[in-house]
Design a protein around this nucleic acid. Structure first.
Lengths: 324, 324
DNA sequence: CTGAAAGCGCTTACAG
DNA sequence: CTGAAAGCGCTTACAG
């Protein structure tokens, strides 16, 4: 690997001049600069970034942490995130929560973006230990960190209202039976004076499989919900499949609205009506916040986004369901 | 951020002794070592890896490149890959093909693992420019690089044979109508003296959506295939959905075998019969190869894996299909 | 416009 | 067992 000194020798200048030329400093005569650049290309010079980083104290790379890379949301956002950082002159690297702390400390990244639906507290606090700025997104507020959050409770309320408008009164919930979304579900029903029963809540983690299994096994007697809310994209899909598997028609027999608005939701067997934030907004705001934090101009600490309702084909007016 | 010199001052020793203590060198007296370690912990010392890297020339991190992070195979393999590297004392970072070249050169990683189904030639050659070892996997052989490949042609042959054993003679292909798999499809039919027609090949990229659309629109007249091969996991799923959407029963009316054996394939509406390599083998071999290359003991240059047939429920003996 | 010098935080022979 | 010194490849005042 050629170094700055090799080039200096070849060009017959000092290596500090080479350094300046390579960094396009105005302090070096165009002619020399050009000569140096040509030689650099000729020897296929590659700057040693760790060395530059050591000298300047900045790496121009940021780390992105994903709690759950199996979630299709991940693929959807990662590419956009990387592009946004690139526009800001930063390179982005991806990692999973388990190794992020150690990794980014080692690499001395300039900033960290943490995406977590469930938000692993120990992973986050490990990140905080490092001196670099971190912003979190996709989760609930984090007390001590800038974050972009979504009013998920409002999202669930919107889902309930939409269902109620269609005449539904027995509304079930599939997903994690705890946290903001679940609480909003309970509160939403109570506020509207709607009934709820333990049997209408199918507790499961945010995976396709668990949601599928839960929905497949649950009681679908005459007293069962006529509409369900699935607490994220995976859950909604798994639930949909299970419903269909059981011979129920969606939305004719049962309605379903899912949280998270991925483009793919439209491609499901029954295009899913969903509620969720515009993902591009989430991405853009998260990047903006981190850039500001890196430049120490962190005026805004928290951005709160509103979800929207996307009506497709998985909700229909209630009619009493034919028993199984 | 505390440095080695801060600790030295606090401990009343030279900083070179601190360095040795921190690296657990046997050259320092246990008592001093312990005192140094305690101080290091007390001041929350974090080693500056770029500096260490500059001094030693190695970073102990490897880069993993994924061409297509939207492919569920990605999530499946990334976690396993990271674990394997960890067992070898290496940290792994993920990135997408577009930025990998620049990124890994900047970071001076010790090795690169490149996963590509379609194999983007320019991205790979950009990687090769760097002096660090790279191994590719999940794609065809790469002429100049160590690689772990799968005999995909054999996989397709296995699929055809399985279908033929079930009495099928008109076998269609959904996926990229070029490359190894497609060629194996054509050759396989020819070798068995089976007919084939242009209309039985649905060309599409490896996405759910394209496969779905292609299968939805194709001619399903009396002359259509009674069985299909989907060229990867996404394609097989999209095709399955389209078939069902058209009112065809799988496998009663049409059979389908998919390439790639992801655990999720079993969870499809109709559990899919698939053909593909054991993914853990792919992962393990790829890591082993890269580790060997990094240690300059690259004896094996290419590992070729055999796919297997996984029989589930999407293939049935042929019966003439009821026309649509 | 150019170059000599110091320094970033670490590692590693080498001498004591 | 400990420490002084040189060096990794770069950047950046500072002097010329």
């Amino acid at each position: 690997m050629a170094t700055i000194r090799d080039i200096a020798r070849l060009a017959g200048v000092s290596y500090s001049t080479v350094s300046k030329a390579l960094n396009d400093s105005p302090l070096v005569k165009p002619a020399t600069k050009q000569r140096i650049l040509e030689i650099a290309r000729a020897v296929n010079y590659q700057k040693n970034i760790p060395a530059a980083q050591l000298a300047t104290g900045k790496s121009m790379v940021v780390g992105i942490v994903f709690e759950d890379i199996a979630n299709p949301l991940f693929a959807h956002m990662a590419a956009r995130l990387i592009d946004r950082f690139d526009e800001n002159g930063y390179q982005a690297i991806l990692s999973m929560a388990a190794q992020a702390g150690k990794l980014y400390r080692h690499l001395c990244v300039d900033g960290i973006l943490y995406w977590g639906g469930a938000m692993n507290p120990s992973a986050v606090s490990e990140l905080q230990d490092t001196a670099v700025p971190v912003v979190v997104f996709g989760a609930d507020d984090h007390h001590h960190l800038p974050s972009v959050t979504v009013d998920r409770a409002e999202g669930i309320r919107m889902a309930i209202h939409h269902l109620v408008e269609q005449g539904h009164r027995r509304i079930g919930f599939v997903g994690r039976a705890e946290g903001v979304k679940f609480q909003a579900y309970i509160d939403g029903l109570n506020n509207l004076g709607l009934p709820h029963q333990p049997a209408w809540v199918l507790h499961c983690h945010h995976t396709w499989r668990e949601a599928y299994t839960a929905m497949l096994q649950c009681d679908m007697g005459a007293d069962a919900p006529t509409a369900w809310i699935g607490s994220n994209n995976q859950v909604a899909r798994g639930a949909l499949r299970a419903l269909l598997h059981r011979g129920l028609r969606v939305p004719e027999d049962v309605s379903l609205v899912g949280y998270d608005d991925l483009p793919e939701m439209e491609l499901e067997e029954v295009p899913l009506t969903t509620v969720g934030p515009a993902l591009d907004d989430v991405v853009t705001n998260a990047v903006t916040l981190l850039m500001a934090a890196i430049r120490h101009e962190a005026t805004v600490q928290t951005v709160r986004l509103m979800p929207k309702l996307h009506i497709r084909n998985s909700v229909a007016p209630r009619k009493e369901r034919c028993p199984m």
